[in-house]
């Protein structure tokens, strides 16, 4: 068929390139748009792995809502003022090293604890309904708790936006 590993590789490259742009681009709005493209790339990867529902969530929530929030916030602020903030060289070097070490540490832990799950094969034919049954029967309590978490977030958002900074 027309789909080869080429599609997978180019999808991963697509996501990786825009991830790099997010980190290195100096213009925050461009970075936010790259973030959007990265999310879309992730959606494609999930799709290729056979997880249709995850693709939907990825596009609807991450690309359709979270990235919009980022773009929005960056447009609302006065970006000319923020351009003057340049982190000192030593600090960014230190932060970079810590971030890289942390990433490798987390990856090592994940890889050594979950060797069974690291199959490179695609998911077995899991229909959406099997997944949903699991969500609403086995993982019922976390599902219900997630809504409480979102309620908490709503309250927090309202309080943040109501806070007045005294002139």
């Amino acid at each position: 068929m027309l789909d080869t590993n080429l599609t997978d590789v180019s999808l991963c490259l697509f996501a990786a390139v825009f991830a790099v742009v997010v980190v290195f681009n100096k213009n925050p709005v461009v970075a936010a748009f790259s973030l959007l493209l990265m999310f879309i790339g992730f959606g494609g990867i999930y799709f290729r792995l056979g997880s249709v529902f995850l693709t939907t969530i990825q596009i609807l929530v991450y690309a359709g809502a979270i990235a919009i929030l980022f773009v929005f916030v960056l447009m609302l602020m006065n970006l000319e003022e923020t351009k003057t903030f340049i982190p000192t060289k030593n600090f960014s070097l230190f932060a970079g090293i810590v971030a890289i070490l942390a990433m490798f540490g987390i990856l090592t832990i994940i890889i050594f604890n979950n060797t069974d799950y690291l199959a490179t094969d695609k998911l077995p034919e899991v229909s959406m309904n099997t997944l949903f049954t699991k969500l609403f029967e086995t993982y019922l309590v976390p599902f219900e708790l997630s809504t409480l978490l979102l309620l908490g977030a709503t309250v927090a958002v309202v309080f943040i936006s109501k806070k007045r900074i005294p002139q």
């Binding site: 748009f33 959007l36 879309i40 799709f47 249709v52 529902f53 693709t55 939907t56 596009i59 609807l60 690309a63 359709g64 809502a65 919009i68 773009v71 929005f72 447009m75 959406m128």
Partner: peptide, 20 residues
């Protein structure tokens, strides 16, 4: 794709970006 209406809906959700 097996996504059905999800695909249409998700693609429509990207609509605001061109405008922004």
């Amino acid at each position: 794709s097996g996504l059905g209406i999800f695909y249409v809906f998700a693609a429509t959700a990207l609509g605001p970006y061109g405008i922004l």
